[in-house]
Design a protein around this nucleic acid. Structure first.
Length: 237
DNA sequence: TCATTAATCGCAC
DNA sequence: GTGCGATTAATGA
């Protein structure tokens, strides 16, 4: 599973908190001790209930973070792409992961032990501030998401999911570059596969989206945003 | 190609 | 809105 090392100084993920502070000698030094992990499509790299010993940074590829629920239903918490942190909630006092993380596409990860992160946070104030801002943003997003799931209709939740995916994973502004199953869209939107299919096909007949196989193109972002704006379309949440 | 898996739709609750 | 089951499309060995 462990492959050749990726040098943080050469990394192109400018949004990564490590890369952002790589000018610090301490971080340069600590980044030597990270390990690099490659996962194939569908493979899990964090298991719910497993002991926590570090943090993952996505180097390349896409992952999903989810919580297993009752009778086979899952709740996708968020999607993670290059530069983003996975497994960060475990950094607190909990000693086991509360989530499962899985590769959607094949994914390359950088792994830092809890201790090495701690050491860096003590020594590099700028990194500590960045981490704090990051946690604060995540908390904000997570709160608005709870509200959305509770208050939105199924159609709104699916629309919201489409907008989220487009915002995060579109290189041309309309095509969602990640291939996800209808089941996965449902797991994110908090419904069932059937509901997703129904909403998708009515959106198609309203000419708001197009689908080509599993690929989805969002044609009219403004109109969809308008549809859910009373629920506070919140950036990235 | 055939076999398996995913997507879709209709229908009952 | 939800969930089952039949049909059809897509995917892969």
């Amino acid at each position: 599973m462990v492959s050749s090392k990726i040098d943080c100084q050469e990394c192109a993920n400018l949004n990564c908190l490590i890369k952002k502070n790589i000018q610090s000698d301490k971080i340069k030094e600590m980044s030597q001790s990270k390990s690099t992990i490659v996962c194939k499509k569908g493979q899990q790299f964090i298991m719910q209930g497993a002991p926590i010993n570090g943090l993952f940074f996505v180097y390349k590829g896409i992952g999903k973070v989810l919580q297993a629920g009752i009778n086979g239903r899952e709740q996708i918490i968020r999607m993670a792409k290059s530069g983003e942190i996975v497994g960060y909630r475990g950094f607190g006092s909990a000693d086991t992961y509360s989530i499962t993380a899985q590769a959607i596409d094949s994914i390359q990860l950088c792994y830092f032990s809890k201790d090495s992160i701690k050491e860096m946070l003590y020594e590099v104030p700028q990194l500590a501030v960045d981490f704090m801002l990051f946690y604060s943003d995540e908390l904000n997003k997570s709160e608005t998401r709870v509200r959305k799931l509770a208050q939105m209709t199924v159609r709104e939740r699916v629309v919201d999911t489409l907008l989220y995916m487009r915002r995060k994973f579109s290189s041309n502004g309309k095509t969602i570059d990640v291939i996800m199953s209808r089941k996965e869209y449902a797991d994110y939107a908090g419904t069932t596969e059937e509901q997703v299919i129904r909403v998708l096909s009515s959106l198609k007949s309203e000419k708001l989206i197009t689908t080509i196989g599993k690929r989805i193109d969002v044609l009219n972002v403004e109109k969809l945003q308008k549809e859910i704006e009373e629920h506070h379309y919140f950036l990235g949440s």
